[in-house]
């Protein structure tokens, strides 16, 4: 661990750890989405809504009946997406291509609506795009 000195030889790194203190977002995904109903989705990216306070992307997923359900996945804010390395272009360039999403269903029973936690685009890289609903930790 790096050590920093501020004052005449006084070592100021004390080594205490932080307790969990939530950092606050526009709103809590865990309040709106069900941490006990999270699942893997594989489907085709069909589009995005690139606006704040949250982005949304849409994925067509085959259902058990052989049909296709059009899912809407909520992400963190656009500024957080961009600062964490996911751009609008990343989505636009992959419309029509297969994607993987880990998402959690809406508590209010809304059909085909979920919070995205992670997303894998065709480049094969898993990336965080939402708050971590399953473990209750908020991310923007």
């Amino acid at each position: 661990m790096s050590r920093y000195r501020l004052c005449g030889g006084l070592p100021i790194v004390i080594g205490l750890m932080f307790l969990a203190v939530p950092s606050y977002a526009h709103h809590s995904f865990a309040a709106e989405f069900d941490s006990t109903k999270c699942m893997d989705f594989n489907g085709t990216l069909t589009g995005i809504e690139w606006q704040n306070p949250h982005g949304y992307f849409h994925v067509d997923v085959k259902n058990a009946s052989g049909g296709v359900d059009s899912w809407s996945f909520q992400t963190v804010s656009l500024i957080t997406l961009k600062r964490s390395g996911t751009s609008r272009r990343d989505f636009l360039d992959n419309v029509g291509k297969p994607v993987y999403v880990r998402g959690c269903l809406a508590k209010n029973g809304a059909k085909f609506r979920a919070a995205a936690e992670t997303l894998k685009l065709p480049d094969g890289q898993l990336r965080i795009v939402g708050q971590e609903v399953e473990h209750g930790r908020q991310e923007y």
Partner: peptide
């Protein structure tokens, strides 16, 4: 600093439905 205007807010509608439920 980047732009952050809140123009696509879906939470009030969704949370109101959750409250009703």
């Amino acid at each position: 600093l980047q732009e952050y205007f809140c123009t696509n807010n879906q939470e009030v509608d969704q949370l109101t439905k959750l409250k009703d439920k």
